[in-house]
Amino acid sequence: MMKKVRKDELIVPVTFIVFSILCFFLSGISFMFLAEQVALRFIRNIILVLALIFPIMAGMGLNFAVVIGTMITQASFIIVLNFNLTGGRGAALVLAVSLVAAAGVGCVIGRLLNKVRGREMVTSIVVGFLANYIYQLIFVAGFGTVIHVFNKKLVLSTGIGVKNMVDLKTFKEVFDNLGVFRIGEAKISMLLLAMIIVCGFFVFYLMRTPLGQKIRAVGMSEGKSANIGIDTDRIRVIVIVLSTVLAALGQFVYLQNIGSLNVYTEHLDTEKFACAALLAGGASIRKAGVKNAFIGVVLLHTLFVLSPLAGRNAFANASLGEYFRSFVAYGIIAFALVVNLRLERKGE
């Protein structure tokens, strides 16, 4: 029994490694270039993936609502820029505003998910969609009408609606000036790297505290946990708050590293790719750890970097690789869900 489960856990990562090796030879790029690209994407993505771990351990499945955390950070950037706050002070303010707002919103989402026990995943997807349209409404129609514009550079020439692209260089420079870490051409701020390490350690550590034990207990058997005296509703809200806050932090690191913000599209699909990464690392929708997140992000992005190039070389068609990315992301989510159902049935 134990051995079987382990094999199921390994199927996805092994498939990824095999595909990656195949694509590496087809693409014909240097290893250095690959390492540089993967490192960059790793930095940008890892915290968002870590944000998914708590809800899984609490038995709530993949929390697709992490996308809301990313939107909150983007909104914070725009709002802070609107008040013409730049540099270190601005960055700190963005961070503070986004984390506090994420905690508040996470609390609301957590309560909502408590009302739809057993259907958390679907609900989180729909809530994510809803939040997306509210976000777009605010920045397309709200800016310049309801919200006063202090920073004219942000809005379109009509005076209503935020531009597609917002420059965040003023914040990026602050971080880059505090020391960078180079892999090939890629520059990675030391401070961001430190934040990532702290987040990884935080998740790892928290699962080994009394709170973590309660989260695990709730995830394994909610009914029994309630009878042992664990306030399951509270634990589930805490978990979603942590998840949303981590997601907001993740998007902060991501945007800091890129240095510009695609207001209306930057957050799209991030949650799905984050889920795919975690599952690629061998997690299931019942069990996940920091290890899965780190391995998964590396594996998924290796394949993502290589597949368009491999597609161009093998089929003389680069766009094939683009389709391949989406296919891989949704494919492994679907696969993980099926494997999970099977394991659950076996476990009964």
Binding site: K214, M220, K224
Partner: peptide, 23 residues
């Protein structure tokens, strides 16, 4: 309880100390 309120995936020690862990 008659039907046990134990978390099956945790160890004996973890179950006994659940919610009252030493830290």
């Amino acid at each position: 309880y008659q039907e046990f309120m134990l978390i099956p995936e945790m160890t004996v020690a973890e179950n006994i100390k659940l919610t009252r862990e030493n830290t």
